[in-house]
Amino acid sequence: MYNILLIASIFGFVLTTLLFLKKSTQPKATIFLGSFYFLLSVYALQAYIIDGGHLALCSWFFLWPLILYNLFAVPIYFYFETIMADEFKWKKRYLLLFLPFVLSVIDAGFIYLQPDAVYQEMLHNALTDPKNRLHVSYWLLDLDQHMLMRHVWQLGALLIVMPKLLDFIKEGTADGLKVILNKWLLVFWFGLTLFAVFAIFYAVENMLAINIFEGGSMVPVILYLIMFSIGVIPIYFPTILHGYPQVIEGTVDSKQSISNQELDNKYGLDEAGVKRKLKLLVQKKLHLQQDFNVTNCAREMEMPAHHLSYFIKQQYGLNFTSYKNNLRMQHAKKLIEDGFLENNTTDALAWECGFASRSSFSRVFKDATDHSPSDYASILQDNG
């Protein structure tokens, strides 16, 4: 049973690394999400170590993580707020989110300031009786009270964002990326809410020495399964690594009312900015390189490949390959008009336009002009 905690922790650390290192269209939201998965990974790992009976091998992994766990509500709330507002602005009321963290700093600091025998006794009790470790007393609160408080704060943060989230998912529903984002946010919110609820049940069970459900181990098992699900569910939503800009920057006055239809059309990437970057790539003639594909193009533009493909489809009605070939055919026709074939072969023309072979170039050229390159040159010459 405890192995699922280890798996969830490993998945979480991998996801954290990807979120922190991956370029994103919403870097602040991505950092907040990565911060949450880091906390969840440490939480799952310590639960695996202590509840699984491995604390003797990792005795250093004790007490101090309490401070991290009591930050749970912070990245969760900030992530949803940033995604829905497409920005993050600090507000004084956010200080309330840090109350569990402040109390844990005080309690953990108090224990570390005590004689070493106090810490060693606490560690010994966790080693010999891990099931009852939540009853340990600090200074202000017991460990089970810390657990109850942090997850009450987590649940409160999720309930606060819920009305805004429900309004948010109603907007821009004709946009493919927005539909994916809506599904992710609903699944993520639901998973976090279940996590908070069952963690609260677990804390209450330990505080009152009762079993809320029949079978004393049911609540922790469900809690571990929920943690595992939250840790691995991003596999089904890989686009969350890149973020989602809400409204095209500079095109909508914040004081204007925006209809759902306008949001359907404008939700996505910065249209002017992307077109400007595409124009710059054409000026640099990168589309004439043989390895010019959607991945390399997106890397040059510092944006996710799936966002670029989506943008080109929405703006030009073409997939990326067709868009690239159209640019190459414009260059090919210009070269032919300038007399390139008078002193060069069709193979040289194909190579000049980014094609690896004459046959593939000729096929694309005929699809675009209804003529072979040589026939097109002859027609130009006759008309001239």
Rank of each mutant, 00 (worst) to 15 (best):
K183E: 06
L148N: 07
K178H: 12
T173D: 09
L208S: 07
A157E: 05
M122Y: 09
D129I: 05
M162V: 10
F190D: 01
F201Y: 01
N206Y: 08
H151D: 14
L165Y: 04
Q154V: 12
L158H: 05
A199P: 02
T128P: 08
L123G: 02
F188R: 11
K131G: 02
P163M: 15
L181V: 04
L158E: 07
R133G: 00
V161L: 12
F195S: 01
L148G: 06
V204T: 01
A196I: 02
I160Y: 06
A157S: 09
W189G: 01
F198K: 01
Y138S: 14
R133I: 03
M147K: 08
V136M: 14
H151K: 10
L134P: 00
L192N: 09
A174D: 12
V161T: 09
D167S: 10
L165T: 04
G172M: 13
Q145R: 14
L134M: 15
V136Y: 15
M149A: 13
Q154G: 12
P130T: 01
L186K: 03
H146S: 11
W184Q: 11
L194Y: 08
A199W: 03
H124C: 06
K131P: 00
L186Y: 10
V187T: 07
W153I: 06
K131Y: 05
W153G: 06
A199T: 03
L177G: 11
E205F: 00
S137R: 15
A174Q: 13
N206S: 10
A196N: 02
M149G: 10
K183G: 05
F195A: 03
T173R: 15
F201P: 00
Y202D: 00
H146K: 14
A209F: 02
G172H: 11
T173Y: 12
K170N: 09
G172Q: 12
K183V: 08
E171M: 11
I180Y: 14
R133C: 02
E121A: 05
L123F: 04
M162N: 05
Q145N: 14
L208T: 02
L185S: 02
K131L: 05
R133S: 02
